[in-house]
Each structure stands twice: as structure tokens, then as C-alpha cells.
Amino acid sequence: MSIRLGYQMPNYSYGTSVDQLFPTVAAQAREAESAGFDAVFVMDHFYQLPGIGSPDQPMLECYTTLSALSGVTERVQLSAMVTGNTYRNPTLLAKTVTTLDVVSGGRAVLGIGAGWYELEHQQLGFEFGTFAERFDRLDESLSIIVPMLRGDRPTVNGRWYRTETAMNEPRLRDDLPILLGGGGEKKTFRMAAQYAQHLNVICNPEEIPRKLEALEQRCAEVGRDRSTLETSYLVMAVIDESGDKARAARDEHLRRTGVDLSALDPERRRSVESRQFVGTPDDVAADLQERVLDKGIDGLIINLIANGHEPGIVELAGSALGRLVR
């Protein structure tokens, strides 16, 4: 497994009718594959997220969507960015991602995290719990899922879950990769060091050196060579051949979510813009090289939240960014 360049779709508000929604998703996945992306990711949520849109905006169920995408692509790996552990029993999740691997011909990646969106839990009836409880549940869940993906039959009588020689058949392989996503230096990074092949780091770019130093420490604590754990950075980008058009698309997207950059004080504006990469393909590539890759991150997982659904935009991104990570 290697994901040096991934494409994430965090948004299904394309202005299309419902019958055209999945064709628009499928077109992006095919374009990402053609443009040389290693993987395609979709959200594991049931409501749209704050900061992207209102809760009632379109949100497709993750694993149904990934299975459908497996039928319209041939090469790209397929994953959630990331599965919310609280939404599924771990044995069901192991079965689900293994089935995706079988139907896709060995292209599934289990992207997983602790879960955080309280409104979904409250309204849909999922147990939310405290921050610490969610990470404890994730740890216990991984102690079940990992053996099931590897062909073992775990018996667990834990605080959160119970299994008895849990079987997981059929499997196409015993090395289905696991990706953890997050920025927690103690809990998330420790679980990544223990269980994962890939860590997607979520943070402000200036925090990357500290995050990688913490990851080095977590790997040392479990006796793992840090170089065996691939890293990537989650990027929100707006790319267009016209830099002015890209910035206008970014500003319009922010206005739709209630943020007017021109009205913010300088410190708040810098905070909002620090995790955005906006401009021409060459502008964005140079910015990512300097602020992310030169800091030691291995790869990039990019979303094009404002205009990725427009034909040709994913191709622009793949062409410019692929040169940075190969």
C-alpha cells in the first residue's frame, strides 16, 4: 500500500438533481484515476459537516458509495476519510471493508477514526460518550478488527464490545491496509504506531514538525521503525487555471458557510487561510511543497471542495501535484 496522492470528496452539494448526484461523484473518481491519484476517499457521515454546509445538505452513506465506485474504477484504492468508529460494531465494519476489498479486486483501505460529530449521534441514536471514551472504544475496536482482517478469530470480552472466535470470510488478502486520521499526538498517534500502515495528519501546516516528532516518539514506544508508517496531510484546496477565479470560488464557498473573509480581523483571517491552498496549479503546488512536504510529510490527500465536481479540475490538480510526490 502506498498513498502519495489521494482525492477526497467531502461535499455532495453540486447543484444537481438527486438522480445526477452519484454520476457526478463517479465522474470525479474516474477523473482522479485518470489523473494518477492513488486513492479516492469519501466521507463517513450522515449529515453534512459544519464549516462545509448545513446538516440537511446531501450526504451519501460511505460504504455503499465506495462499493458503487469500485464498479466504475479499475486501479485507485478506495477508502473512507475516515470511518467513524462509533457508527458500526467492529465486527460489522471488518466484514464491510473486507467485502469492499473482495468486490473491488483488492483496492480497499480501512480509514478509521474515533468519531466526533455530536449532532449525528444525538439525532440518529448513536452513543456518543466522552472524548476519552470514544478513543477507548476505537482502541478496543481495533483490537478486534485487525485480527479479523488478518484471518484470525478474536475473542474479546471488553468494556465496549464482545466477540467469540469472530470469523471473517471470504478475504482476498490478509494485509488489507489500515489508515488512521487525526492530529492527536498521544492517543491517535499511538494507535497509528501500533496498528496502521498510514497516518493522515490533520493540523495547521506550522504544526507539522511537532506532529512528526511526536509520531517518532510513539513509534519508538512500541518498538516500531517510524519509516514503516507512511504519512500524508489533508489539504483543502481550490485550484483553477486562473488564480483569481480560484480565489473567487474559495470566497463564495466560505460565504455559503457564513464566513466573509473581508470582514474578519487579520488574526482570524490568517487562521482561516492557514489550512487553505488556493490559486493556479503551480501556485498550489509550490505552497504545498514549502509548507507541507518540505516539513517531512510523505504525501497529500486533497479535497477540492469548491469546484472539484467541475470537469477538468481534478485533472489539473493531479497533473500539478503528482510531480511533487512521485
Score class of each variant (00 low, 15 high):
S232H: 04
G151S: 10
F22L: 06
V284C: 00
M1Y: 12
E273G: 01
P90A: 02
L304Q: 02
M167A: 13
E216Y: 08
T91Q: 09
T98L: 03
I302V: 15
E185Y: 06
N89R: 12
Q276M: 14
T83V: 12
K187F: 10
W116K: 01
L229S: 04
D175A: 04
T228W: 09
D265V: 06
T231Q: 04
G296F: 14
S34W: 09
R107N: 08
M191Y: 08
A29K: 05
L149M: 05
A26S: 08
Q28S: 02
T130L: 06
Q20T: 14
L288S: 01
G15Q: 09
D175L: 09
S104G: 05
G111T: 04
I178H: 02
L300W: 01
Y7T: 02
R159K: 14
G182Y: 01
A166W: 12
F46E: 02
Q122L: 14
A68H: 12
V314G: 00
K95L: 03
T73E: 09
I313Q: 05
G113M: 01
G36N: 08
F277S: 00
G113V: 01
R107P: 11
N89G: 04
M9A: 08
D244L: 09
L215C: 03
Y14L: 15
I144R: 00
A114C: 05
E206H: 15
D287K: 10
S2A: 11
D283S: 02
V18Y: 12
N168S: 03
Q48R: 13
G243P: 10
R30M: 11
T228M: 11
T280W: 09
H253D: 09
G322P: 03
L264I: 01
E252W: 05
P177Q: 11
E185L: 06
V278W: 01
N89M: 11
Y87G: 00
L92P: 06
